[in-house]
């Protein structure tokens, strides 16, 4: 009964991704603006000297949290994209395209400016909360629009427009913010994994972990939902609560990423698509772990490129993800059109 080919392919993909992930972890650890020999890197990881050297501090306080956050948040973003694609039954949906990341960015930027102006320091928990509110807000607008716009193309256009509006407002806010904060804020609003500290990472980790745990319990209804809403309902899926849970979890994941790393484009669309073509199956039991791993790999790779391509100048992470992600999305749309024509149905 179990499909052995699909199963084998799944485990092969998992093994492959874990392998690439470990290579990328090492690569990210070894490269950076300061050249640190590999021996020093390893001693920094494992030594327990009470007075760490500058090199040790770079490894422990900058590179390690950065690579962990790239992996964690990349995975979260990719799963968020997968959930949204399930919800809208459209492979081009994703947190960035639907304007959810930009919505989160806007509220975080506004909250930051507001707090900094009053001298209140914003905790990472506060950031996530603000981001979550923004994500939900733009999600609501998209959902509201989706009641009228049955055509998915229009819905995507609507999401992109929301994204632009939010970005524009953010830009305005950033322009009028206090000079001293602009540099920081500007970097963040372009998207970057730099400057994430261990305590931020812990908070992000908790949120992502909780959301992922919630997602595991959605595997079952997602599988039934693949046959469409009516069939899912006839099998006993409570459609309303399923949809609410799906949206909340996708928003939490996207919001956590945006709160700490800013809006990152294309990961949410490109990674699930790549994973689908790797697995040649859309079984949620397989998709979920593979998407998370794939997102981690993709973001680690992009972050490595962002740091090392024009070192010591750093590119924003979205620049790199767009560079690699956009062609994948174009290929995806082309292959869908071909499929539609051969199937004779949309």
């Amino acid at each position: 009964m179990k499909n052995q080919i699909d199963r084998r392919r799944f485990f092969f993909c998992l093994a492959f991704l874990v392998f690439v992930l470990s290579i990328l972890l090492v690569l990210n650890l070894l490269s950076g603006s300061t050249c640190i020999p590999s021996r020093a890197v390893f001693s920094a990881l494992f030594s327990t000297t009470p007075e760490p050297t500058a090199e040790m501090r770079i490894i422990r306080q900058i590179r390690l949290p950065r690579l962990f956050s790239a992996a964690l948040l990349g995975g979260a973003l990719s799963v968020s994209g997968y959930l949204l694609q399930t919800f809208f039954a459209n492979p081009i949906a994703g947190p960035f395209v639907l304007g959810i990341s930009s919505g989160a960015k806007l509220t975080v930027a506004l909250t930051m400016i507001f707090c900094l102006a009053r001298g209140i320091s914003l905790t990472s928990l506060g950031m996530v909360t603000a981001a979550f509110c923004g994500a939900l807000l733009s999600m609501m607008v998209v959902l509201f629009a989706s009641r009228w716009l049955k055509n998915m193309a229009f819905l995507i256009v609507c999401g992109v427009m929301i994204g632009y509006i939010c970005s524009a407002v953010t830009e305005v806010a950033v322009t009028f913010a206090d000079d001293s904060n602009i540099v920081n804020l500007h970097n963040w609003s372009m998207g970057s994994f730099s400057g994430i500290e261990w305590k931020d990472l812990t908070i992000a980790g908790v949120f992502v972990l909780l959301a992922m745990a919630g997602t595991v319990f959605l595997i079952k209804p997602i599988n039934a939902y693949r046959l469409g809403e009516s069939y899912a309902r006839s099998m006993g899926v409570n459609i309303l609560s399923f949809r609410v849970e799906l949206i909340l979890l996708a928003s939490i994941l996207a919001a956590t990423v945006t709160a700490f790393a800013g809006p990152i484009s294309f990961v949410g669309i490109a990674v699930p698509h790549l994973i689908r073509s790797m697995l040649r199956s859309e079984r949620p039991h397989y998709m979920l772990p593979t998407c998370f791993l794939g997102g981690a790999v993709f973001c680690l790779f992009c972050d490595w490129i962002a740091r090392s391509l024009f070192a010591p100048t750093e590119l924003s992470i979205s620049t790199v993800t767009a560079l690699f992600g956009a062609p994948i999305v174009i290929r995806l749309m082309l292959s869908r059109r071909r499929e539609d024509r051969t199937n004779g149905c949309a």
């Binding site: 009964m1 499909n3 699909d6 492979p91 079952k220 599988n223 039934a224 693949r226 046959l227 469409g228 069939y231 099998m235 006993g236 899926v237 689908r276 040649r280 199956s281 859309e282 079984r283 199937n343 149905c345």
Partner: peptide, 17 residues
Amino acid sequence: VNPEMMRCEEVIATGRY
């Protein structure tokens, strides 16, 4: 219904939901 990349066997097994 147009499920993506779903084998017949998988479609049938969803009935066990």
